[in-house]
Nucleic acid binder design. Structure first.
Lengths: 337, 337
DNA sequence: CTGTTAGCGCTTTCAT
DNA sequence: ATGAAAGCGCTAACAG
């Protein structure tokens, strides 16, 4: 079946008006006769007329669309941030195009091409664990399209960034473990390429130092966030001559997997070993034992990122500033520690 | 900062070529000199040239974009379906625009306008619990834009639909409860406007009938899927003079909430009362006790829906057929029953 | 208040 | 193998 599009011309012809008048009526321009406008609007409604945003975008060089690129949709974190950002953008009259990179650098690059080709007015990004080269993102700034990072930010680019205080969150959850008498605290860390990995690791180290616990490198395992590998690392830790009495996992999915491995070995949580996570995913309150974790203001992150982006779009600035918004975390103590 | 767009004209001028030649080189048209093509491609790469899809869409009347509208992103179901559909569409060269209606009819209507304005080539929809009028969706077919429904389908429209066998899934999980000796099985049902509610309810009724258990209307509570209300219904059921010995919840989130309410009352699951869900959400294996549920081939649903849609787009048919793809469910018995 | 003209960036005839 | 011209649907000057 052929696609039929109702255009301004159709309405103009029917009503014996000029295209411009119809256009003006449709866009709510004040300088148009009330009855004329009424007539146009009614006919448009009747014909299911929809403005062709392609044409408008072409001419105004604005699509009122923002793009969001996220690495994954498996935990509740990114869906929630995305939805919050979308809602906030919607309030400002922006549509949202979402792409997920599936934690692959190549896919992320492809995603940016799509965004560019579709002329997004701005981009929200959380990079993959593989991303080390940022040329594909720098293109946007070179073209004058604002970028805002969140969660997984790019340190070498000047752009607004929305993060939580990872250092502080890690510091507090590890301090909490120490307060509960834990002495050998292991850390399942993330890829060193990600800032969040580094910051959480630093928070961990700082808490140990502050409490005069010596840092034991053999208790820190950086991994690539591939959940299927967690059981290997956890078992490795438990098989150590001096196994840890607590594991601080970099994320809730990691912690949840850790709990399951530990339970499978017949050990008791938290009696034999405590486990903590990071993010307060939906599932963390459901698992048995419920997970002690650091909650992030997830919706707030999405909202803030969207606001910053729209701000940039409207501001029409000539320079990219390194605005960093650090949101607060909260320690949620449950039964796993 | 002004937006700078590199255009074909820029390349043409630089290379002393005509626009047409550059365009042909860029689109891989065969009738263009190999060296010329090479030259064009290199310069395009160097200048970060990206084809303006707005212009192309305007002229070809095709955007290579499909739209997806889903009611929510809170459980793992819709994110997973969406991602699977997006991947499948990507393979066929289609981009994806995702909107969520937040279970609101008004928002869904607004979403369809956006899709129309952005000239999507096809639409994937799962309707809200409120949607009773389908005019906003019928417009698409009238304009020649294919629609495919999944999960929450519209019965009164002729269009491809991807569903699971809700009746059968419900029948089997209820039969399972009966096998385990349950006699008074309550059902937390969904809004009657949704086909899935009706089908699951019918499966429930059929299983009772088959096992000569009388249908007791007071044990069936249709609710609007607002999770915050679940505790009221569960408590109501538990306070009945003859309380149920099992609750079949229409969805996993409902079941999980149900479990928590029951646990809070100090009752034992499944000894005092069994609970089952529907969908096999990620969280259902984590909760204590783990949830007996009906698993759906979620990725398969997204993939199939995308395939059907792209099929329709390419087929250029003049009529909308009521193709219904019914995917199989699987009973997952865990510890809650 | 309304009409006319030009043109956004690109593909697509139709020429050469 | 390349070029020239027309036009997708719309808005934005510039006129009246």
């Amino acid at each position: 079946m052929k696609r039929h599009q109702v255009t301004i011309v159709d309405i103009a012809r029917e009503l014996q008006l000029s295209k411009s008048t119809v256009s003006r009526a449709l866009t709510g321009h004040p300088s148009v006769n009330a009855t004329t406008r009424q007539l146009v609007l009614e006919l448009a409604e009747k014909l299911d007329y929809q403005r062709n945003m392609l044409a408008i975008g072409l001419i105004t060089r604005k699509t009122n669309t923002i793009g969001i690129i996220v690495p994954e949709f498996t935990s509740s974190y990114f869906p929630t941030v995305t939805i919050a950002a979308q809602e906030e953008a919607g309030k400002a009259g922006y549509n949202t195009v979402i792409c997920q990179s599936n934690e692959r650098y190549e896919t992320e690059v492809a995603n940016t091409k799509v965004m560019l080709a579709n002329q997004v007015d701005g981009l929200l990004v959380s990079i993959t664990k593989e991303t080390r080269n940022f040329d594909h993102l720098k293109i946007f700034q070179r073209k004058g399209i604002p970028i805002v990072f969140f969660n997984r930010v790019c340190d070498e680019m000047d752009a607004p960034k929305v993060v939580v205080d990872d250092y502080d969150g890690a510091y507090r959850v590890v301090s909490h473990l120490i307060e509960r008498g834990r002495k050998r605290i292991a850390h399942l860390s993330g890829p060193p390429s990600l800032m969040i990995s580094q910051k959480r690791l630093n928070g961990y180290k700082a808490a140990l130092r502050k409490n005069n616990i010596e840092y034991d490198e053999s208790l820190v395992i950086p991994y690539d966030l591939n959940i299927d590998m967690v059981h290997i690392y956890v078992n490795h830790l438990l098989n150590l001559p001096a196994p840890p009495d607590a594991i601080f996992a970099i994320s809730d999915p990691t912690a949840i997997e850790t709990i399951q491995v530990i339970k499978k070995r017949g050990l008791k949580i938290p009696e034999d070993i405590a486990v903590t996570g990071f993010s307060n995913d939906f599932a963390s309150s459901l698992i048995e034992p419920s997970l002690t974790t650091v909650s992030q203001p997830v919706k707030e992150i999405g909202k803030t990122a969207a606001q910053l982006l729209i701000d940039q779009i409207n501001r029409d600035v000539s320079e990219w500033k390194n605005i960093i918004r650090v949101l607060k975390t909260e320690l949620i103590v449950r039964n796993s520690s």
